[in-house]
């Protein structure tokens, strides 16, 4: 795992991640772990105090993107599609932790899976799977070569 501090600065440079008080727990080699504290402002169902699904999906999207960015050779990424399955309600008051893994990447597409847990490490609160665009170092090199050849 690489040093957290520059990556944490990267997370803090994302205004929405800062708005949700996300904290980078670990990152490296196509894997990332990011957590987010419970906040009453994020409640989606006032009858239960449960955090909105949307806030959990923002956490998971960020975590998946971070996992792709840490994949060897990755230079940039954007979400193509993301599916989230909500297994159970997150316990009000508890911190939510997402773990994502980029388990395969071509020069153009990255495939990612993620889970989200509250402080109970048993059944996840939600799982996600998605496809992300991949801007890789090799692709950039290829297009630079192509541009050179065209001249």
């Amino acid at each position: 795992m690489t040093d957290i501090s520059p990556a944490q600065r990267f997370i803090e440079a994302i205004p929405h991640s800062r708005a949700l008080n996300m904290r980078l727990e670990s990152i490296g080699d196509g894997k990332a772990e990011i957590s987010m504290p419970y906040d009453e402002a994020l409640i989606g169902d006032p009858a239960t105090g449960v955090i909105a699904g949307g806030a959990v999906s923002a956490l998971m999207d960020t975590c998946c993107g971070a996992a792709v960015m840490s994949y060897p050779g990755a230079r940039g990424t954007a979400t193509l599609d993301l599916r989230i399955d909500y297994m159970r309600a997150a316990k009000p008051g508890q911190r939510i932790t997402a773990r994502a893994e980029c388990f395969h990447a071509t020069r153009t597409v990255a495939f990612v899976r993620a889970t989200a847990h509250d402080e109970d490490e048993g059944l996840p609160v939600a799982t996600a799977s998605g496809a992300f665009t991949m801007e890789s170092v090799t692709k950039a090199r290829d297009s630079a070569k192509k541009a050179e050849g065209a001249q």
């Binding site: 205004p15 909105a52 699904g53 949307g54 999906s57 923002a58 999207d61 960020t62 979400t79 993301l82």
Partner: peptide
Amino acid sequence: IHGGVTSAF
């Protein structure tokens, strides 16, 4: 806009 915001919206 953050992809998570789009999804939440």
